[in-house]
Design a binder for these strands. Structure first.
Lengths: 208, 208
DNA sequence: AATTCCGGAGAACAGTTGTTAACTGCATGG
DNA sequence: CCATGCAGTTAACAACTGTTCTCCGGAATT
């Protein structure tokens, strides 16, 4: 059964969260490779040395942020893809889901987009690994679809990568657009929807 | 007529080039937002203060790098797209062109991929502007194609964005893959080719 | 030939960085 | 209840940062 973890360990986790959140905030206007450990601790209101109790370095913290930003998304991806039999309404639902996720976790999304090709190798690798996992999962879901009859595993993975990359492009467009109800926002939604539609059409006629 | 610019201005341009090249080198393993001006001048072998004779800041240098990396690519893009009537051979040619460009200017390509969503606003904006220009130019070329009959301007622009984004994704895959003759490399080529093919198929059946 | 212009050097500034060591206080397990 | 463990503190370190001001030498202009 779940042992309501002691006062001590709870405090540690709280500080850790504060460090992660502060870093995430600071990373909205800079890259991880320029994020200083003192900068983070200062923002939290804790001594610089306290940082070492939680992370070896800022790169280490970055890897933790990757896990936090993408680690929990796998179920969401799977169910979303399995729902998509490329009917118009399902595409709209997928785009809406991306939009809402960006609204809910803008800092996480920005972090991933920024560090995917960023200057910190371990973080880049962690992100690539997660994205590759997404692609394989999408492929597996696609394989279940009757529309995938006759497709090779390789071609399904190629399509999956296309979907995953497209998802990221769309997310970063939503990030740049002003939130809530704005014309920019609508334009991004329409754009992403039609792009997904075009890919779906290509998918449908792939075996011709 | 062209006035063979004086000894003085020539030396200035030479130093400027050295600064840009040194920065490009240093940026292979870090982001622009962590690039220090002293770091750059040290690499060139010049006094820190000399930097100010050429750029206001490292952000300013970054904007110059964007112009250098993307500014001269527009003709190449135009002709490449106009050649693409989505025959299989032409797709292969486009992918090969991207691969060769990445081989020829890896540092520039890395810089663009990294700073497109990077931590330095003016640089991000300069890149977005160039990419938006690419998209409009691609749309214009697509519009000339008889296959685009019946397409709205907006739908053509949506397809153009898809092509541009796909080009960047492909370029960054080539960047990560080991160079010259490697199996990784072949995999990327095959992947990119098939993704372009799928998009072409979607394009062909868009009006159904 | 004399004067102006200007790219670069030099030194100094206050402020920042990561990392170390030795400490304090308090929750924890025996 | 006492001894241990450990999150967080304090102080100090050498090294680094961007920026200013003053100066130099040689090309450019007149």
């Amino acid at each position: 059964m779940s042992h309501t973890l002691g006062v001590r360990q709870a405090q540690k986790l709280k500080t850790r969260r504060a460090l992660l959140d502060a870093a995430l905030g600071l990373l909205e206007e800079q890259s991880l490779s320029s994020l200083g450990l003192r900068e983070v601790t200062r923002a939290v209101g804790v001594a610089p040395t306290a940082f070492y109790r939680h992370f070896h370095s800022t790169a280490d913290l970055g890897v933790a942020l990757v896990e936090e930003a993408l680690g929990g998304l796998h179920p969401m991806i799977r169910t979303t893809v399995s729902e998509v039999d490329d009917s118009e309404e399902r595409i709209a639902r997928a785009v809406g889901l991306i939009a809402r996720h960006v609204d809910a976790f803008p800092a996480h999304v920005r972090f991933i987009a920024r560090e995917r090709h960023g200057g910190v190798q371990p973080v880049r690798e962690a992100i690539q690994e997660q994205l590759a996992r997404f692609a394989r999962e999408v492929r597996d879901e696609l394989a279940k679809d009757p529309q995938s009859a006759g497709w090779s595993e390789d071609d399904l993975l190629m399509l999956a990568h296309l979907y995953v990359d497209q998802m990221l492009v769309t997310a970063s467009l939503f990030l740049e657009a002003p939130p809530a109800p704005s014309p920019e926002r609508e334009r991004v939604t329409r754009l992403a929807t039609r792009q997904l539609r075009l890919i779906s059409i290509g998918r449908r006629h792939w075996l011709d």
